[in-house]
Simulated assay, not measured.
Amino acid sequence: MDGMAALIWVIVGALLIVAEVVSGELVLLMLGLGSLLAAISAGLGMPLWVDLAVFGVFSVGLVTLARPALRRRLNRGELVKTNAEALIGEQATVLSEVSATGGQVRLAGEVWSARSLDPTQVMAVDRVVTVMEISGATAVVWEAP
Rank of each mutant, 00 (worst) to 15 (best):
I8P: 02
V128G: 00
E97D: 06
M132I: 15
A144F: 04
N75W: 10
T120D: 15
V131M: 07
G13F: 11
A108V: 07
V129F: 09
S99H: 03
R76Y: 11
A124R: 08
L70C: 13
A137V: 11
T101Q: 14
G103F: 01
V98E: 04
A124G: 12
A92T: 04
P119A: 11
S59F: 12
I11C: 09
Q121Y: 10
S135F: 07
T93K: 14
A137G: 11
G34Q: 01
T120A: 15
V18K: 08
E133T: 05
L117V: 06
A19I: 01
F55Y: 15
R72F: 03
M1T: 11
R127H: 11
M123C: 12
A139G: 12
K81E: 10
G89R: 04
E143R: 02
Q104A: 08
L37K: 01
L33N: 01
L117E: 15
V129R: 01
A5L: 14
S116N: 08
Q121W: 12
A38M: 06
R73M: 14
V131F: 04
V80Y: 10
V22P: 00
V57I: 14
V105N: 00
L52S: 12
V80T: 12
A14W: 00
L107C: 06
A5C: 03
N75L: 14
N83R: 11
V125M: 09
V18Y: 03
L44Q: 03
T138H: 02
L44A: 13
S113Y: 02
L48W: 13
A144Y: 04
E133P: 01
L117S: 14
G34Y: 00
L70E: 06
G43I: 02
L79D: 02
A144G: 10
A38Q: 08
W9P: 03
R106D: 12
R67M: 08
D126C: 03
G56Q: 02
L28I: 02
G34C: 07
A5R: 12
R127W: 06
L48Y: 12
G89C: 11
A100K: 07
G34M: 07
A92Q: 06
E25S: 10
M1E: 11
A114F: 05
L117D: 15
A86V: 07
V27S: 08
W142M: 10
S23M: 06
V10P: 00
V54K: 05
L16Q: 01
W9H: 05
D51R: 00
R73G: 04
V12G: 01
E97G: 02
V125F: 11
L44R: 04
Q91W: 03
I40M: 11
A66M: 06
V18F: 13
T130H: 11
A139H: 04
D118Y: 05
Q91C: 03
T138K: 07
S59D: 12
R76K: 13
L15E: 00
E90N: 14
R115Y: 07
V27A: 13
L44Y: 02
A139K: 06
M1Y: 06
G45D: 09
Q121E: 10
G109C: 10
A69N: 05
G102F: 03
A6F: 09
L15D: 00
R67G: 05
L79Q: 15
L95C: 05
A39T: 03
L36E: 02
E133F: 01
